[in-house]
């Protein structure tokens, strides 16, 4: 038994309660919800929050991994471990069209993300008729997210129209949708990257080991450290892999995820490093650097 003696909820308790409230509200009001699971730290936190929200029952919705086939091997290992738990129903969707066309991050640039991630996500949601999809997006990540609602309404075809978003007051969420419409729901909207790390430490949440610094084979390309995770990695002329102590702040397709040099081998170390940190986590995401305002554009197209 735990008794809290502090007169106030801590900021993590407040954020946790808000997220649990949002998760439950969707399950209470919307048919066929699903939780997008991308295996990263935000997904790990979301999964943990969902387990808490519906404890002692099982998760009342499936997890959905939209697989690009280009994730780190360590990510697949954790995904399969999560899926093996008896209470978890994890579905994997692969865009067979992208696979048939051999779309890859080396030859196809932003088309890779468009087809594998954005199109794949839309296909999966349509295929299963999910009316609400939980995502781990946060408002602190990027400028266009700062104005995103917790409940983000998508017209038929998953388009995000910023002009038709609903006012959100208090803790009252209007979950009503018409035929063909769907909702993306972001329970950790108000968390910052630091909150996520502090929560992972406080709750002892398992995350992909790639978040912790370790000697890994990398090449430096256009100012970014890329890890050679399997033999599909194409080296440019003159590139020689070298072992460096690196970790990742965000994880995606390995040829698109930049590592940072670090000695932080534990969550505590990472938080300590963040105190001195001087770059935002999205810097490591090559996807956002293609075009200016790229996130806004991707959202309008149906990216979560």
């Amino acid at each position: 038994m735990i008794t809290s003696t502090s007169p106030r909820l801590t900021h993590l308790q407040s954020l946790e309660a808000e997220a649990i409230h949002i998760l439950r509200e969707v399950v209470a009001e919307v048919e066929r919800p699903v939780m997008l699971y991308s295996i990263g730290k935000d997904s790990a936190v979301m999964l943990h929050l969902a387990k808490k929200a519906f404890w002692p029952g099982p998760l009342p919705f499936p997890l959905l991994h939209v697989d690009t086939t280009w994730k780190f091997r360590a990510m697949y290992a954790l995904r399969d471990k999560v899926a093996a738990a008896p209470d978890v129903d994890l579905k994997v969707w692969i865009n067979e069209d992208a696979r048939a066309r051999g779309i890859n991050p080396f030859d196809h640039g932003s088309l890779h993300t468009d087809l594998w991630k954005t199109e794949g996500l839309k296909q999966a949601l349509d295929h299963c008729g999910y009316q609400a999809a939980f995502g781990g997006a946060r408002r602190d990540e990027e400028k266009s997210r700062a104005k995103e609602r917790v409940f983000s309404f998508r017209a038929a075809g998953h388009r995000w129209d910023p002009k038709t978003q609903r006012p959100e007051l208090w803790r009252l969420y209007n979950t009503r949708i018409g035929a063909g419409e769907s909702i993306r729901v972001f329970p950790i909207s108000n968390w910052t990257e630091l909150d996520v790390w502090q929560y992972i430490e406080q709750e002892g949440i398992e995350i992909v080991p790639l978040y912790f610094a370790r000697p890994r084979p990398v090449v430096e390309r256009a100012g970014t450290l890329l890890m050679i995770d399997d033999d599909r990695m194409r080296l440019l002329p003159g590139e020689v892999p070298q072992m460096r102590s690196v970790r990742f702040r965000t994880l995606g397709c390995y040829p698109l995820s930049g590592a940072i040099e670090s000695q932080a081998a534990s969550v505590g170390d990472i938080i300590a490093e963040m105190k001195a940190s001087t770059t935002s986590e999205r810097q490591g995401r090559m996807i956002d650097r293609d075009q200016s305002a790229s996130m806004e554009k991707k959202k309008a197209e149906g990216y979560f």
Partner: peptide, 18 residues
């Protein structure tokens, strides 16, 4: 007051509980 991993002996305003 059911919570994961252990039940609570007390809960208060703005906590999400079962």
């Amino acid at each position: 007051i059911v919570a994961m991993p252990d039940d609570l002996t007390e809960a208060r305003a703005r906590q999400a509980v079962t």
